[in-house]
């Protein structure tokens, strides 16, 4: 570990707190270089963490949960529900006679609640004007960089059932 040794034989405090102004500037730059390299290592560790999370990722299994009755909401109407847990707010929109779409209500930018704008037929986040497509949850405008997670729905008899969550 030759590169870890100190370069000078004098005491460390004399080097780090020199009486000469030029030396002070010199030490500050050197310390900043060390700090930048340490930060670079931090970024690398962050990437390793994401890699480990990706490698050991297990797709969660979601429950099947009835969320509405057929015809409960009119065409263009909205129903709010929670899925898959009580903390996960979702929004369901009836886009046609037999068409229902549902998304997580959390904006992918800063988690504000999105709402359905019937006039412009899209989901809108009031916080930073992020707009999402009603067809697939894709970002149409604004700061969000990811689409809204989609709740997959199935019609079973007279009920609309949430069966899965598809991440944007």
């Amino acid at each position: 570990m030759n590169w870890l040794r100190r370069a000078s034989s004098g005491p460390l405090w004399k080097e780090e707190f020199s009486v000469h102004a030029a030396d002070e500037r010199y030490v500050t730059r050197r310390q900043l270089t060390k700090f930048l390299v340490l930060t670079s290592f931090g970024m690398f560790v962050g990437n390793i963490w994401i890699l480990v999370r990706s490698l050991f990722y297990k797709a969660p299994s979601y429950p099947q949960q009835p969320v509405a009755r057929l015809g409960e909401i009119p065409v263009g109407g909205v129903k709010l529900f929670t899925y898959p847990t009580k903390e996960d707010q979702c929004i369901m929109v009836r886009t046609g006679e037999n068409e229902y779409v549902s998304y997580s209500q959390k904006c992918t930018h800063l988690s504000c609640a999105v709402y359905y704008s019937e006039a412009s037929n899209r989901l809108e986040c009031p916080c930073h004007q992020g707009f999402f497509s009603i067809k697939d949850g894709a970002v149409l405008q604004g700061p969000p960089s990811r689409p809204l997670p989609r709740i997959l729905l199935e019609t079973r008899g007279e009920q609309v059932v949430a069966v899965d969550v598809k991440a944007g």
Binding site: F44, N47, I48, I50, L51, R53, S54, L55, Y57, S145, R146, P147, K166, A167, G168
Partner: peptide
């Protein structure tokens, strides 16, 4: 961002 969007294959080249 890619990981949160559900793309797992970008993590290795990024690392």
């Amino acid at each position: 961002e890619s990981f949160l969007a559900g793309n797992r294959h970008t993590a290795l080249p990024a690392t």
